[in-house]
Design a protein around this nucleic acid. Structure first.
Lengths: 203, 203
DNA sequence: ATTTGTATCAAACAGATGTTTGAAAGTCAA
DNA sequence: TTGACTTTCAAACATCTGTTTGATACAAAT
């Protein structure tokens, strides 16, 4: 929160708080308080709370879109898939990384607002293309598009579950095997589970 | 909403609206309006909005806990798993069934309140036991508890994804392959994906 | 120096929202 | 009927919250 630009400070603070509490749950006073600006700034820079929300979502989508996964030619598809899964598990669950970027976007995707269209175009679609490309290599030729999509959702569903339902996971697994202590174990489980499911396309 | 008992009417209306909009997003006025009671009823019967929320969550957990899956002795574990998955997909996505029961509970489990403890005890734990039991049969003997738990989450993650991220799924798949048109296809995909993943425990 | 446009601020406003009140109506037993 | 108790109601209350205002400070250009 140490950016000088006040507009950006509000944007960052808004992202964090919207991610944590949702649109209704977040208050502009808490946001401007964290951004350390006057309350009139939200009207001055963004017109109103809703536009601020939209801009906040677009902002993280824009920032995140820059980080792109890429592999050298000839990398086995299975390795790419493993990387893809590990990358997103780390992104969502690594305690050292700020998870609110992904959280804000996931929130938006479960209750879409006007920000959704741009979010999909700038963030979801590119990621979707990456995963889709990997699956195209991995699945047998002639697998229909819809089947590929369902497979992609099976993968993302596993990954996102640990992010959105963290409390219940911790509760059910207990302290001694808390999976969030070592996200690599978690990612490896998802990788293995998925690769096994894809290993025998017609069982 | 045609119950005579006003207390129950409020409870039902509250459940629906809390499920749709969350705790903050729901207003007591909208709730009492749908329940067709005076606004003072929430104070009279539940003391305040928060207690009403807790009671609403407990209420659906209690109702849902009655429906239990059971199979005749000797049913193959794979069949049980398929039933389990199909049951929950239908429960969450079948347009003929009210999905707000499950939605309300999922919401609670991603942002737990005081209602969470009872919800886990009355609803999650039993379901967890059922799925855990199936996996115990299905996974090779000696598989550690933590591995079973991760596998269970891989299954639930797939199922819940379609519920929580319905908008983005529809958007990405397009109208012609909209998976919500036929939830059986969806359930079958998850069943096959999962059974293949479990078929070769060490690959 | 004057003007013009930008940025920041404290204060207030208007509406929504959770909650409470005190009375009225209804219920039921003695 | 009386009295005690429960339930329902319209109204008001207090607070929170999004938004606006008008003044002030600052900077750059004329």
């Amino acid at each position: 929160m140490s950016v000088e630009n006040p507009r950006e400070r509000v944007l960052e603070a808004a992202g964090e708080i919207f991610a944590e509490k949702g649109f209704k749950g977040a208050t502009v006073r808490e946001i401007i308080d964290r951004a350390d600006v006057n309350i009139a700034a939200v009207n001055y820079y963004f017109r109103d709370k809703e536009r601020l929300y939209i801009e906040a979502v677009k902002h993280v989508a824009c920032v995140d879109a820059d980080e792109h996964l890429a592999w050298p030619r000839g990398t086995p598809a299975a390795d790419k898939l493993a990387d893809f899964i590990r990358y997103h598990v780390a992104r969502l669950l690594d305690p050292h990384k700020p998870a609110w970027h992904a959280r804000l976007m996931m929130r938006e995707l479960s209750q879409p607002s006007d920000a959704c269209t741009e979010l999909v175009r700038e963030y979801i679609e590119p990621k979707s293309k990456i995963l889709g490309g990997i699956l195209e290599e991995l699945l047998p030729e002639g697998t229909p598009r819809s089947r590929r999509a369902l497979t992609a959702f099976s993968i993302m569903g596993q990954i996102l579950f640990y992010s959105t339902h963290k409390p219940i996971v911790s509760l059910l697994m207990g302290e001694q095997d808390d999976p969030y202590a070592d996200t690599k174990v978690l990612a490896d489980h998802i990788v293995r589970f998925t690769l096994r499911a894809l290993a025998q396309p017609e069982a």
